[in-house]
Nucleic acid binder design. Structure first.
Lengths: 223, 223, 223, 223
DNA sequence: AATGAATGAGACTTCATTCAT
DNA sequence: TATGAATGAAGTCTCATTCAT
């Protein structure tokens, strides 16, 4: 046993696989969100993780796989955060409201996660769409359920129920986009952003109910 | 006469600099929007442009410069499109409406431009923010002017005029975000997307006038 | 077993870093001295070293760093050679003499080292001056000590001791220059070159003692 | 005739070849001495010369040819300077002295020329040696003639005349080296440097006459 | 006589990835 | 389980050089 082994702050050795994977993912999320997917180097990730590169490859595969794993994990965390924000006993609109608040709170407190999750995943092409799509489906289902109940409580009949799915999708997409935009405008209070989106949804539901919104004055609309 | 001469689609030779620059920018926009900034290789751009790499460097500089030039050009195109959509003689709300329509029409018809302009430029860090900020300022000014007139026509007094600037900024940001989201949901008709945004603005202006929007029922709001 | 395996002189694999660094430096000194700093290509160095380029960058950094490392190492070798040539028990003038001999012997036997060390480092600008200056300081100190003792033994008083430092600097510079010149005149015996320089120093010291040197006849000197 | 032609500070057009060549050489000497052979770019030379690159190639050939032409011209200037410094009616040692003074004065006043001529040409390999050798031969002949007369005046017989050629060569080489060294030590007065060299020669001639110089004490000299 | 336009070739550098221990 | 050692492949950028006008 040579003296050299003591030279650097001893890396803990022989940890169970589970722990190593968490270390690696933590480091990867951090590095990816900091430098972006491409500028992130496996070298830096392995440094930050305190693990050698071959370990990363053994446990989590290539760079793309690693990134996908990051997305998967962070998406789960987000979904959990939202789900736990919604209280089943509240009226539907308040459930929606609290879900939105939970979402934006997550974005606010987990900027790194969100950056990886959405901004990076979105701007990189193909290989990561699947992960994003899967996450979105889950989110849409969640929201759709809330919308249906909300709409019912506002007197919307059965006929339009299918439209709620589209609205749910829009809401999720708008939420993503709005959160993304919010990243660049951190001075806007979270509650305000959340209420913007809430209003958009409410108006959307209102559309379905009575259509009382701004429309182009017919005589001026050329199309 | 060897076969080699036929190998590649005959490049036109000795064009004036102006023309070449346009060719190069066209190619760059295409390649950047397809593969993203980092995955785009100067080699591919030079191939697509039908020009050798040294020409690119001589005319448009390094990769970053080239990308910035793309952003600048596409931003100008967008601003022109919007400006030309707005008719000065219309009432203010119709001007806003047509501006929005023009914006979304541009996004729809120039997907590549928009991808480069917003998605790529947003997800790449620092060096490109300036270009984006410059463009955004121009856009915000344009919108602000419209909003002020619209608000006046709805009876808003002098006191709140400063708030319109904030709303303009929000509108521009929301527009960017919504368009970005729309990219992934091409089945939603352009008019619908535009009307969503129009309503959001209208509601925002309404806020300034009478504040009639959804708010969480006070007793249920914990925060 | 394919033919390919035999194509290149089998590289020894997985050597410890220390060894590889030496291999690389050896190769670099050789290539730099052969082609000059600019014409030397990292490719050739890596070939000669029997190591891939990424290793060079990992171990010794950029081209400039690598060159600086060469200078540092060769300078150390030179200083060691000189120091070990000087015998502490000899009279001062003999110490100086042996130091000079050792210097010229080093230049003769390590032409490559010397070329890198002096000719290349001198003709390249800025980044390498520091290394050269550092080496020169060490040499000057060494020589100065010898000169002081030599001068004392020839009856030089305290007052002129500061002048020895200047003379030491001159000697080192002259030595460098003379050795450099000698590179192009290998037929001159080493002992002769050494004695030339020795005489120059002796005359310089003599100057300090009694000034008996050639001078232009006053009436003919126009300036 | 378009307006464009007037845009830049009008390059003088249609000059006779002779003039153009001088412009180009002037620029080349300047750029080569500033950046070194390799870092000098044909682009910069053509800019400084106010002439397009194809002209350079047409008149003076490739980069190497151009550099060789620089060496040739500057060498001629140097030889002229030395020759004009020597006055035929002076005694031989004063002729030598004035020749040396002229040489160092040239180096001092034409640093650029000298840098190109010696330092650059020396540190670049092969292709330029020829030019340097040719120049050196001329110089050696000149010096040899002086030495022969000087030696004769000091009582040297016929037998040793051949040795003067070697000494002449040594003097020229030492002069080059010393001047080169002087470049890095501009604070040493020119007269001092010249006198150093003069003394070295004088001592060398003294060697030929009577051998009264420092020699290692026989018992201590191992070799 | 003179040049703007154009390029082949090659330099340095870095990265994801894998052996061999 | 864990890693230091090692590299193929690719990317950005620059330069000397030459057409075609």
């Amino acid at each position: 046993m040579s003296v050299d082994e003591q030279r650097r702050p001893a890396r803990v050795k022989r940890l169970p696989r589970e722990v190593r994977e968490r270390q690696i993912l933590d480091a990867a999320v951090r590095v990816f969100s900091q430098h972006g997917y491409h500028n992130a180097s496996m070298d830096e990730i392995s440094d930050v993780a305190g693990v050698s590169k071959p370990m990363i490859y053994a446990y989590l595969g290539h760079k793309e796989d690693l990134f996908a794993a990051c997305i998967r994990r962070e998406a789960s965390l987000l979904m959990d955060a939202i789900a736990s924000g919604v209280r089943a006993e509240s009226p539907p609109d308040m459930q929606l409201w609290h879900g939105l608040r939970a979402f934006f709170e997550f974005v606010a407190s987990q900027r790194e996660s969100w950056k990886v999750l959405h901004r990076q995943a979105t701007s990189q092409g193909g290989p990561f769409s699947e992960e994003l799509l899967a996450m979105r489906s889950r989110a849409i289902n969640l929201v759709d359920a809330l919308l249906v109940r909300s709409a019912t409580s506002r007197g919307l009949g059965e006929t339009a129920t299918k439209a709620t799915e589209a609205l749910a999708a829009a809401l999720v997409g708008a939420g993503e986009s709005l959160a993304d935009w919010w990243l660049d405008h951190p001075d806007v209070p979270e509650k305000v952003v959340a209420s913007w989106l809430m209003n958009l949804v409410w108006m959307g539901l209102g559309d379905l109910v009575d259509g009382a919104v701004w429309t182009p004055t017919p005589e001026a609309a050329p199309e």
